[in-house]
């Protein structure tokens, strides 16, 4: 599945491959220590760049407050 930013899709796939492995082999087996953080940060920065260009950050921020959890936009 594509990312919202075409240039982020490859980063997304790299991160997801790492996450899926972590999720099945560690998280579901009770090991909660985080993994894939570098890949996630790279991928997320790319997505936030796209969202900023589309003027989406405020909309997302507002929606997250309604649903409930805290949200810290990262736009670097």
């Amino acid at each position: 599945m594509e990312s919202v930013g075409k240039e982020c899709t490859q980063l997304k796939h790299q991160y997801e491959e790492c996450f899926n492995k972590w999720y099945t082999e560690k998280f579901l087996k009770g090991d909660h220590s985080p993994d894939c953080q570098d890949l996630f940060n790279k991928y997320r920065s790319c997505v936030f760049k796209t969202l900023k260009e589309r003027n989406m950050l405020d909309t997302i921020d507002g929606a997250r407050k309604e649903i409930g959890s805290g949200f810290k936009p990262q736009s670097e």
């Binding site: 599945m1 919202v4 996450f19 909660h32 996630f40 997320r44 997505v47 997302i60």
Partner: peptide
């Protein structure tokens, strides 16, 4: 009809619960 999905936030809380926010187009 699903064009894209992105994880925009994800963390495991101290109780071992995985929280994820995704943006879907």
């Amino acid at each position: 009809h699903v064009l894209s999905t992105d994880v925009i936030d994800r963390h495991v809380d101290p109780n071992g619960v995985l929280h994820t926010t995704r943006l879907i187009l």
